[in-house]
C-alpha cells in the first residue's frame, strides 16, 4: 500500500481517496432522499384531515434544545477532525465522545418530542400531515441513531489501532456524515418548525 505523506492521513492512499469521493456521491443520494421527503411534506402539510396542524402541536422549547445540541455537536466533531490532523489522538477521541454524547442527548429530546405528539393525538396514523411529519423527523432521527453506533465503533477502533490511514479515513468520513445530518436539521428547523409556527 502506497502512503502519500504530503496529504492529510485520511487522503493518503488511493483507496482512501476513493472512499471519500464515494461517500460524497452517497451524500448526493441522501440529499435526494431528504429532498423527496421535504417535497412530500410541503405537499401534505395542509392536509391535516381531522387531526391537528403543525401550529397546534409544535413546541419551541424542545426544538430549540435539539437545535442547540446538534449544532454544537457538529462544531465539536469539527474540532475532533482538526485534532486528528494534528495527530493528537486523545483530544480527538474526547471531541468525538462529546459529539456522540450531544447526539445522544438530541435523540433523547427528540424521543420526548415524539411521545408528546402521540400524547396530544398526533400519531403516525392520524392524518397525512402527521404521517409525513413523523416520517421526515424519524428518518433524520434514524440517521442520528445509526451515526451514534457508527461513531462509537470508530472511537473504539482509533483507541485500539491508533491513527492509521484506515482509521483516519473512517473518522473523516464519519465527520462528513455528521455534518450532513446537521445541515438536514437546519432545513427541518427552518421549513418544518419555524414555518409551521409562524
Amino acid at each position: 500500500m502506497k502512503i502519500d505523506h504530503s496529504l492529510p492521513l485520511e487522503y493518503s492512499t488511493d483507496q482512501n481517496k476513493l472512499n471519500i469521493l464515494g461517500f460524497w456521491i452517497f451524500i448526493g443520494a441522501e440529499i435526494m432522499l431528504f429532498a423527496t421527503l421535504f417535497a412530500s411534506y410541503f405537499t401534505l402539510v395542509d392536509r391535516t384531515g381531522s387531526g391537528p396542524s403543525g401550529a397546534e402541536i409544535f413546541e419551541i422549547t424542545p426544538v430549540l434544545i435539539e437545535t442547540l445540541l446538534l449544532l454544537t455537536s457538529s462544531f465539536t466533531i469539527g474540532l475532533g477532525v482538526h485534532a486528528m490532523r494534528l495527530g493528537r489522538v486523545k483530544a480527538m477521541l474526547t471531541f468525538f465522545s462529546v459529539t456522540l454524547i450531544l447526539g445522544l442527548a438530541f435523540l433523547g429530546v427528540e424521543i420526548y418530542e415524539f411521545v408528546h405528539y402521540v400524547h396530544v393525538g398526533a400519531g403516525i396514523q392520524t392524518s397525512a400531515f402527521t404521517s409525513i411529519l413523523l416520517t421526515t423527523l424519524g428518518t433524520h432521527g434514524a440517521h442520528v441513531t445509526l451515526g451514534l453506533f457508527w461513531g462509537l465503533y470508530i472511537i473504539l477502533q482509533v483507541k485500539k489501532r491508533g491513527l492509521t490511514p484506515q482509521t483516519a479515513n473512517k473518522s473523516f468520513i464519519f465527520s462528513l456524515y455528521w455534518h450532513f445530518l446537521d445541515v438536514v436539521w437546519i432545513f427541518i428547523f427552518s421549513f418544518i418548525y419555524l414555518k409551521g409556527m409562524m
Binding site: 392536509r47 381531522s50 396514523q125
Partner: peptide, 20 residues
C-alpha cells in the same frame, strides 16, 4: 411510504384524513 401505508396504517396515499 407505500409500505407504511399498507403495514402501519399511515395516511400518505389514502382517500381520507388528508391522504393524497
Amino acid at each position: 411510504m407505500g409500505t407504511m401505508d399498507r403495514l402501519f396504517g399511515t395516511q400518505f396515499f389514502t382517500m381520507e384524513n388528508g391522504g393524497m
